[in-house]
């Protein structure tokens, strides 16, 4: 058997490689060049520091080469990506209006469902309260019966009171279960997903100063403040030599 002699000699082994969504040969060329430049960068790093104007000039050429290589690779990346981006835009253009319409229809109708569920929930709440009150009343009645039977040494009465106690416990369980149950709207056909009310929690800023003190150690707040200060420090009207920003050190670096 030929297959036994050479496992690669099978049907389809000489097919062309799977197409890539980019020009594989161009990517390979860029990768090879990038490696070459990275290798040279190693030579530069080995120097530790520039010792002469001549080396500074050579480094200018090296950095210029790096910048151009980056641009060439980036240009090819953009060129290879463009058809996909364009195709993506076409797909978006085809689907987005449909999705928007569907979403709009849902947004218009959903409030009706919410209003219904809120109404049912209010009724459910009233019913739960009524059941709780009824359970309490049965429990009190059972206790009263038990006490009366005990005072009379009425065995039959005690048995009735025991039964009433059990009934009271059951009523309480039912009331608790009912209170825990959630309001939802089930599919009429069984095909739709059950809908319920969702709880959303929003926080709105009332007192920035107090809020700032509360979050003063939060890294996200530090980041936000740094961003604001950077923005101010880099503004044209800001003089980094003389101006200050409270709470910040202004550092000038040249590189």
């Amino acid at each position: 058997m030929l297959d036994d002699q050479n496992p690669r000699a099978v049907s389809g082994d000489n097919n062309p490689p799977e197409p890539t969504p980019y020009r594989a040969d161009v990517v390979e060329q860029h990768a090879a060049k990038a490696n070459e430049f990275l290798d040279a960068a190693g030579d530069w790093l080995d120097l530790k520091e520039i010792e002469s104007e001549e080396q500074a000039g050579q480094l200018v050429d090296f950095l210029d080469g790096l910048r151009k290589r980056f641009k060439l690779a980036d240009d090819d990346r953009k060129a290879d990506k463009k058809p996909h981006d364009d195709a993506g835009k076409d797909v978006q253009a085809a689907y987005t209006p449909i999705l928007d319409k569907i979403k709009k229809a849902g947004d218009r109708v959903k409030p009706m469902q919410s209003a219904w569920l809120l109404k049912v929930e209010a009724e459910r709440k009233a019913e739960a309260e009524r059941k709780q009150a009824e359970a309490r009343r049965i429990a009190e009645e059972a206790e009263r019966q038990a006490a009366a039977a005990a005072s009379r040494n009425d065995l039959a009465g005690e048995a009735d009171a025991e039964a009433a106690q059990k009934a009271a416990e059951k009523a309480q369980k039912d009331a608790d279960r009912f209170a825990k149950s959630k309001v939802n709207a089930r599919s009429a056909s069984g095909g739709g997903r059950t809908q319920g009310l969702r709880t959303y929690v929003y926080a709105s800023l009332k007192n920035p100063r107090v809020a700032f003190m509360h979050y003063q150690d939060h890294p996200a707040l530090h980041e936000c403040l740094t961003q604001l200060a950077q923005q101010e420090a880099r503004a044209a009207e800001f003089n980094a030599e003389t101006d200050t920003i409270p709470g910040f050190d202004i550092r000038i670096e040249r590189k």
């Binding site: 060049k33 070459e36 430049f37 290798d39 040279a40 960068a41 030579d43 530069w44 120097l47 010792e51 002469s52 001549e54 080396q55 050579q58 480094l59 050429d61 090296f62 210029d64 080469g65 790096l66 151009k68 290589r69 060439l72």
Partner: peptide
Amino acid sequence: TTHETPTRPRRKT
């Protein structure tokens, strides 16, 4: 062209 062949540092200055 600076981007075809990387410029390497020359030790001797």
